[in-house]
């Protein structure tokens, strides 16, 4: 009886020590799930999901606060990928804003007064300019988040949808009708 108790207690102490040691030794900094979710999000940093950027939204999904269907730039495909990753059912888009075609911001340089408000708003530093100097968008860096549109006091920023070019053209899904059964 006593020997059995001692053996069990001994095992418990040894295992407890192993677990305690590994908890310190193999501690994971941050939540790896957040990184995985963040890798799927489109990184426009637009805040249309209601969180101040893609990473906060990823953190909110990981903690179960936010739904997976709030990201407009990610579109349906992004929701599918998140559903696959998290092992949950796909949900149709449920955010407050509509899914829009991919765009880049454009500054009407004749109207721009050089107030630098858009530069401060841009999450990816895609606007060049200085105080009282004309500003312009670096189109290749612009993620189309629209965060610069609202702060502009003279409304000189518009969103221009990206047109399909010969270099970005994609083969379409083949469409044909099957032969009718006789």
């Amino acid at each position: 009886m006593l020997s059995a108790l001692l053996v069990m207690a001994g095992i418990a102490i040894v295992l407890g020590a192993v677990l305690g040691y590994s908890a310190i030794k193999f501690r994971v900094e941050g939540n790896p799930l957040v990184d995985k979710i963040d890798a799927i999000l489109p990184q426009t940093q637009c805040g249309q999901c209601g969180y101040p950027g893609c990473r906060p939204y990823a953190a909110a999904i990981a903690s179960g606060e936010a739904d997976i269907n709030l990201c407009p730039p990610g579109g349906e495909e992004g929701i599918h990928k998140l559903a696959d990753l998290l092992g949950v059912e796909f949900k149709p888009f449920g955010g407050n804003t509509a899914i829009k075609p991919k765009s880049v911001a454009f500054i009407d340089e004749n109207v721009c007064i050089g107030c630098t408000l858009c530069i401060q708003a841009c999450p990816v530093d895609a606007i060049v300019g200085a105080a009282k100097q004309m500003h312009t968008i670096i189109a290749s860096e612009c993620t189309g988040c629209e965060l610069c549109v609202a702060p502009c006091p003279v409304d000189c920023i518009s969103m221009v949808p990206i047109r399909e070019k010969i270099t970005t053209w994609k083969w379409k899904y083949p469409v044909y009708s099957l032969a009718p059964a006789k």
Binding site: Q43, G53, V124, A126, K170
Partner: peptide
């Protein structure tokens, strides 16, 4: 072409994340 486009998008997203 879908796979290529996706790879490009992924690259753009990674770039944007880095800049952000």
């Amino acid at each position: 072409s879908e796979i290529r486009a996706r790879a490009q998008e992924k690259q753009a997203a990674d770039h944007a994340r880095e800049r952000h």
